[in-house]
Design a binder for these strands. Sequence first.
RNA 1: GGAGAGGUCGCAUAGCGGACUAGUGCAAUGGUCUUGAAAACCAUCGUGGCAGAAAUGCUACCGUGGGUUCGAAUCCCACCCUCUCCGCCA
Length: 410
Amino acid sequence: MLDIKFIRENPEAVKKGAKAKNVDIDVEGLLKKDEEYRKLDLEAQSLREERNKAAKERNIEKGKEIKEKLDSLEKNLSEKQEEVKKLLLQIPNPPKEDVKVGKNDTENDIVKTWGEPPKFDFQPKDHLTLGEALGIIDVERASKISGARFYFLKNEGALLEFALREFAFELLIKEGFTPVIPPVMIKTEVMKGLGYMENGGDEDMYIFEKDGLVLVGTSEQSIVSMHKDEVLDVKELPKRYVGFSTCFRREAGSYGKDTRGILRAHQFDKVEMVSFVKQGEDDKEHEYLLSIEEKLLQSLGIPYQVVKMCSGDLGFPAARKYDLEAWIPSEGKYREVTSTSTTTDFQARRLNIKYREEGKNEFVNILNGTAFSTRPLIAIIENFQQEDGSIQVPEVLQKYVGKKVIKSSK
RNA sequence: GGAGAGGUCGCAUAGCGGACUAGUGCAAUGGUCUUGAAAACCAUCGUGGCAGAAAUGCUACCGUGGGUUCGAAUCCCACCCUCUCCGCCA
């Protein structure tokens, strides 16, 4: 959510930002409604003033008269307020100055490439073929009991995932992040507050009507909401969390896309970073989160490229976003494995998360980034495959997996 | 699941239809005193909105949403949450 005052003063900038994101908004309509709202509000205020006076004087007759007027006025007022709010919530966070204006993912820029794609003197297999043969991934049985887009991770498959998690947690705790395991179900109201249920976002969610709960699509949703309606002490900032949780996505509208293997599933695990920083310090923090994500992939030895999203490929709350794409040999291309975004004060305003400095309250800036998810597992399996179908375990993960090579036990 | 208690300003507590313009204590901030500190004392001290150049004024907010009333923190209804006890259960 943007500050209505900012919109009043910078309507052109707001329009420009929305256009760059391909979002249709009605700024003029919003400002007109806002003006009407303020006019009504002023009237209501002075009526209430009279009402309070009359009550104090025990002027029952006059009080009754005012009450009647006020009742209808307040009804209009709250309707108008709803209309303003509805329009306000439809306005996306404008992209940062340095973000290229572009239509969609075809206009994203590769800003960095690290490592060399491995050269195989045999035909590399994909992660599912390898995983099934090694007995570490089982999609067939998962579909028997849960349907499409589910998987079992078994044996070293399960261990590899724990290894990624442990490795990420150890590194991030050293960096001062607070480890956290958040709830994976949050109230529908809270999810709405996050702004993820608008524009059809609810189509991608598992919703429990009876309990008023929603399964999170990323632990960012629980962790960011953790400080909802709080005023943080400036001394606590930057406040950084590393969370682990299972994530749930209906993947509606992605039928036929990435159906093979475990790249796109209804349920997967993710280690997520969330930072709360002072107003204006998000650029620095964004580079920091990016550097951590790079360090993690580098430690594994996975070749990757950093892609800076153009305006049209940014989500609704993001002002800047980087994707880290790992090399996937079976596809012969880079695929997104992690990403990081700054939402500036957009989410904070919506969730009412502030910090106090020198007696003044200010909205925090909130950023998020993936440390690891199940996806890097795919990159490991494919990049470190051997001709005999075994997989070399990255050195940094060996102590967690307990071996250097994953071989078929058959 | 059953029975009870309770949600008030950062924290703790008072208030249970009209002087509540929400009191008090603690914490915090500034100051006095002190070589420095502690203590003591003095002062300041909730959030949002609107109007205003500003000083300031008005208004809303006592878990949330409705209702009763000229007037609600206070009464009524619904919901949410927390705690205690019992039952069940990782």
